[in-house]
Design a protein around this nucleic acid. Sequence first.
DNA 1: CTAATAGTGTCTTTCAGACAATATATA
DNA 2: TATATATTGTCTGAAAGACACTATTAG
Lengths: 302, 302
Amino acid sequence: MADSNLRDRNGLTEQEFLRRYDAGIYERPSVTVDMLIFTVFDKEQDNYRKLPEKALQLLLIKRGEHPFLGQWALPGGFVSVHEGLEQAAQRELLSEANIGNLYMEQLFTWGDVDRDPRTRVISTSYMALVDRTALDVKAGDDAADACWFEVDCRLVQEKKTMLADGYELERLIRVSLVHETESLGATVKVTTSYVGRTKRVSREIVESEGLAFDHAKLIEYAIERLRNKIEYTDIAFHLMPPLFTLSELQQVYEVILGKELLAAAFRRKIAPLVTETNEYTKDAGHRPSKLYRFNPHWGSLE
Amino acid sequence: MADSNLRDRNGLTEQEFLRRYDAGIYERPSVTVDMLIFTVFDKEQDNYRKLPEKALQLLLIKRGEHPFLGQWALPGGFVSVHEGLEQAAQRELLSEANIGNLYMEQLFTWGDVDRDPRTRVISTSYMALVDRTALDVKAGDDAADACWFEVDCRLVQEKKTMLADGYELERLIRVSLVHETESLGATVKVTTSYVGRTKRVSREIVESEGLAFDHAKLIEYAIERLRNKIEYTDIAFHLMPPLFTLSELQQVYEVILGKELLAAAFRRKIAPLVTETNEYTKDAGHRPSKLYRFNPHWGSLE
DNA sequence: CTAATAGTGTCTTTCAGACAATATATA
DNA sequence: TATATATTGTCTGAAAGACACTATTAG
């Protein structure tokens, strides 16, 4: 810290200043963390020979209180003054997903004035990726109604408008969430404007069915980030069990990227990140597959 | 919003609930924004034939109050409950750098409990990239002592330690800031641990000379992000004037990446992002260079 | 044998790195 | 003309896309 003898315009040293400091003058926003907990699960398969299809899932909690009573929201909660932001996120994760020490990454901080009808709330969203097999079947104990929703996020419209000094790109993105009979959805408009050399991105919820707050935005953003990062980092492995086949790994990539990949190229690319074992899958109605494990690397990404 | 007739366990509708909601129960952290305003400038050149060297600069403000009186800090300030986070950042930018409507991007939210000795402060850092030629020479009017510091950020040590179920990578990064006779610096330790399939990154300030708060961390992080993003987005153009030569553009890339690039490859890669004009540089002691302008693309990145 | 997935070989295309070769201002 | 930068051409090697071909299990 600074030289302890320095005095400010009021003749105070830092010590003296801090002793007198009153933090209570201004009204302050509340701060929360919101968790985007993703996992991948196997859908049931009718044909015994076929591999189970995989799907991306997101944990949501049914609100038991106002506001948005009865709607679904991301797990999260207020940050106390005595805990760090990351700590608060870990705490939420533990209480909601009942699992600690997993992959978690800060995504974005949402600070619009009207995002919560109760009061001014600024919220930092965190993404966590969990391996379904390591997870307790029941999700947490805190919230009564915590459910895994199958997520799907797709572009439904893209519009380009030329402006005087640039252009504007407007994309409508449909977020769908399904859990058994329950079906939620929202349309998010992502507007990117290039004016001069200035780029600006903004998100707006066009419609929302059953999703609380501005959480549709947080979900859309998280999926975009997930899609991006899976291409140039090794985060996908956080979704895998300790042992997996390369086909399973490829399925996870495909489900997140929303497109099919060629097996040969995929295997080449992923090869340096995995180590083969001597074990194989059994009892499939077809050729067994070698099991691999994750092999993190010196000097790999991020 | 939810069905307005739904009643919670106390028999209240959402309307009634919100009317009675009291936000004042819990103690709340303060929220601030911190701005990392980067620009590139031309250093003086002795030899009239040589091109001026370029350097990356960051705007810092000398603190006129406790805490950290007399040290240098990132421009920034408290977020009021009546303004959005982004708005607050724009406001700071305008008051500090005296320029509006430029490129700005949210980087990270810093929420450690002890990062500010006054009180609990959570801060969101924003990076802004400005074209030096479009900027008023005097930076802002708000803070008396605002100066552009030449920044340099380099890896000084890298250590890998094997752990039971993974390894830990410890990097010491030296941040140096120079403005005329003033010279600031800090060493930041970035620890990345891979345990099982879980990765965790943490930053710690090992030493700091003349930099207030935890701002050395914010600077190190911003430069890391800038280096990363310049490789796969077009943010570098925000640092350029409307017309520029490809050599100048290449210099900007080199200064940010901290390494030399081959001209041929660079030109190939950058070609789709620029449009050539009919203008040329003049009065250099060598062959004149064609001037280009930025050409944003449909469907380009992000 | 058949269905279905596992896994490999290889041709082509694309692109980055390297570096040589050529062009053109000014003092 | 010498200096310093501007700009292009092309060889090489690595990696991605495409696709065909072979392998192996349960039933």
